[in-house]
Design a protein around this nucleic acid. Structure first.
Lengths: 238, 238
DNA sequence: CTCGGTTGCTTGTCCGGACGAGCGGCGAGG
DNA sequence: CCTCGCCGCTCGTCCGGACAAGCAACCGAG
């Protein structure tokens, strides 16, 4: 009788209590059975029950009051984090027709500023597009410092099958730590307008990707046409 | 000898270890002393040391690997949450000259949809502007269902000194629970363009404010000119 | 040299017991 | 009637011990 991979007992107790809250057996606002009662019911030690209750409290299922009891708060809502256009772009694979151009160019001022280099320092500009059906739905430009692109395929016009993030991780063991995004409405540049086939306003996203030390690995700039992109964000204000 | 309010021992152990990480005594990547060693050093039981280590791991200070040891990750960074234009607008106070108009109007389609009512249902439209110096920097329109505005000053053109959120909380005991924001680039409407004195692209924010039951309390629509507003967001991708 | 078992260190989980402290009801005394 | 102290219930914290399991290094057999 080998129950392979039986979850730890405190997790079993947690799951049981969560189920009862979902089922309405333990209604919000009501008091849970006392620790002693739960010990008897589940046939485990109090340490185990307490661990389960503490974890449930930390996850927002219940509230514990010293000397009174544990009280049901309800199903905790996941903080439904928002869309991260900057990160998403680094994870998308490429196809032959999605590549617009891959060039070595002098860094424009705003990009040089983001990368922390002098204006007109040579950098690799890798421009791609994404499609929804036949329509071009976004223009993405990556800006890599030469020392980052060195030894990678980022400066070659061949499509990266698994995206920029995987490529940098696999080839140069670079790990992303955090991303800074700056978001504003603007008119598309002439070049973007040509590719998009429209001059209507775009959501401009300027992102920098950093390593654990906080250094900028590279920058990217997205043009998301307003008619096609809506970023949704739900947040708690309790 | 009364040590008033001595913190629990596991918290003392946590604080000591945090201090050593901050001081560099325990450098990132290195292994912490084993639980047994910490038990000896601090003169507490292993349960206490384990509680301290588990809590530190949950807060992101260390990582624990079964059978290997506990390893320092570093000072955990607060997840620097992003700007919430929708919420901010509900918290700003008003002045006499910031009010553009307060009218009872039939709900336009997209607003009716957000509020969950039929098109052209009468609602209160409260339009305001914000300034940076002399320049109008944003146009904010609140859309209140009549039953929400009932008994409040929201349908009166007098400035709300402490903002919409405080007013609804104080007068009708309505508590905000969460906000849903939809964000896109668009052209300003004719009306917004007149007020802003510009037709350049704006960041359009459509937000709904919900109570704990998930019902929509009201909606608001912001027009933030792209040249003046940049939303910044930093997030971890580890 | 290579392979596989043994051994020792580490964390993961669990138990049963212990004492303290917050809270609320109840009854005795004012 | 009100007040105050006692008591029982609850959670908060802590201990020492126990066994399982992951991992790495060592060592002998082949």
């Amino acid at each position: 009788m080998s129950m392979d991979f039986a979850p730890p007992k405190y997790a079993q107790v947690m799951t049981a209590i969560q189920q009862r809250i979902r089922d309405g057996e333990y209604a919000p606002g009501t008091m849970l059975p006392s620790e002693t009662q739960l010990v008897r019911e589940f046939g485990v030690g109090r340490t185990t029950v307490v661990r389960a209750l503490q974890t449930l409290a930390m996850q927002g299922w219940i509230e514990r009051e010293h000397g009174r009891g544990s009280f049901v708060k309800g199903r905790p809502e996941a903080p439904a984090d928002r869309v991260r256009p900057g990160l998403t772009a680094t994870e998308h694979g490429e196809t032959a027709e999605s590549i617009v151009s891959v060039e070595r160019v002098p860094a424009p001022r705003h990009i040089a500023h983001l990368l922390g280099v002098d204006e007109r320092t040579p950098v690799i500009a890798r421009q791609r597009l994404t499609k929804q059906g036949e329509r071009v739905s976004a223009v993405e430009t990556f800006w890599f410092p030469l020392e980052v692109a060195l030894g990678t395929d980022l400066d070659k016009p061949d499509p990266l099958r698994h995206g920029v993030r995987q490529h940098l991780q696999a080839v140069k063991h670079l790990r992303f730590d955090h991303v800074t995004e700056r978001l504003a409405a603007r008119k598309p540049t002439k070049e973007e307008a040509d590719i998009l086939g429209s001059t209507s306003p775009v959501l401009g996203v300027l992102a920098t990707v950093h390593d654990a030390a906080g250094s900028v690995l590279f920058a990217l700039s997205l043009a998301l046409p307003g008619e096609l992109h809506e970023l949704e964000d739900v947040y708690s204000v309790r």
